[in-house]
Design a protein around this nucleic acid. Structure first.
Lengths: 190, 190
DNA sequence: GTGAAACTAACATACGTTAGTTAGTGATTA
DNA sequence: TAATCACTAACTAACGTATGTTAGTTTCAC
């Protein structure tokens, strides 16, 4: 691991706790055991760290959903696969995911708009899946925008509690989420 | 409306967009058409604004869930009522709710721990409802911690998209959420 | 002796906040 | 009626500190 990657890693860990504004270069330096100015031998700016992680994760999510929607499956299958991908991406680097979820609003104007664009595209592709499910007769006739946002919010909650040291693997979490989202809490006896 | 309330209102509106750290007293002052220092004739500190809204909303949520769990109902009924209360609280002041959701981590140590305590209590009470539902035979045998967090996350997504000018009333939103959470996306034909 | 990685010193700016003052308004009193 | 007082809400000026970042220099292993 290069020093640059090391810095990024610790920066994300701290950013998860203190938020983007709460993480100062001097705090980051202290954690690294060096002076704040020394950090600039490896990275170009504080904004850069945030930008990189946001663009990086947004791209991963985008690839995942486009891939799923490119292959022929029915909606429940698509949703299952997407949830698995989504959870895997989130769990791969929980600090990065947490920053991605909470700190994107501190991106500079241009990058922020770019980010929102990618996020909307992701939501749009999920709405397509839900719409498909309705047309197939697999899903209830819900409002696709409402359903997509609620679904995404449920999935993203994973970053708030998932511990790699815990009992569940990302695959099991994905399975639980899929069950929750598809069948809900109630037993089938309404 | 007193000047103090007016300041609080605009502060929350700005905080929703810029985050707690992104809202500076000088920006707030500009929006108010006065000087930054003048704000201190009405409020005691920037932290105070955050504290007030966090404590205020946390208390409301707490009252709601305790009330629901104090009355005798079965779990699906309790959940329905709680969701209605939850959404109503969120929609009452969307700016405040958004700040409550995203900026609580910027509370000072002491108040933050207090906040987390109240939040945990809320989660705990929801787990009780889910546990009750399982024992009654109404709910699937899910992990209550997982279910409570996922449920809460789904509910809280309301602050990200709800517009009072839109078609749906808070009651209708609550109904949609209840359906989503209880029966899921799938039609009952598994 | 070359390159990576740290250092010291400093700059310009931005921040929350305090202190002391002023302007206007409405009620009370001489 | 005119003068006094309290109150509200704004002002100017400034303080002390923190921030991201730079420029130039040193250290040290290969």
């Amino acid at each position: 691991m290069t020093r640059k990657e090391e810095i990024r890693l610790i920066a994300l860990k701290l950013m998860k706790f203190h938020g983007f504004s709460g993480l100062t270069m001097r705090l980051l330096a202290k954690e690294l055991g060096i002076e704040a100015a020394s950090i600039y031998n490896h990275i170009s700016s504080k904004d850069d760290i945030l930008e990189q992680v946001c663009v990086d994760l947004a791209t991963k999510f985008q690839s995942a959903v486009l891939e799923v929607n490119d292959i022929y499956f029915n909606a429940p299958e698509k949703l299952n696969i997407l949830i698995k991908h989504h959870v895997n991406i989130l769990c791969e680097d929980l600090n990065a995911s947490s920053v991605f979820m909470h700190e994107w609003r501190y991106l500079k104007e241009e990058k922020r708009l770019e980010f929102i664009g990618k996020r909307n595209l992701y939501e749009q592709e999920i709405r397509k899946i839900i719409q498909l499910g309705i047309e197939e007769g697999h899903f209830n006739e819900v409002d696709t925008k409402f359903a997509a946002i609620t679904l995404l919010s449920a999935l993203n909650s994973v970053v708030e509690w998932y511990k790699p040291s815990g009992e569940l693997s990302p695959e099991q979490v994905a399975q639980n989420l899929a069950q929750f989202v598809l069948t809900g809490l109630s037993k089938q006896k309404l």
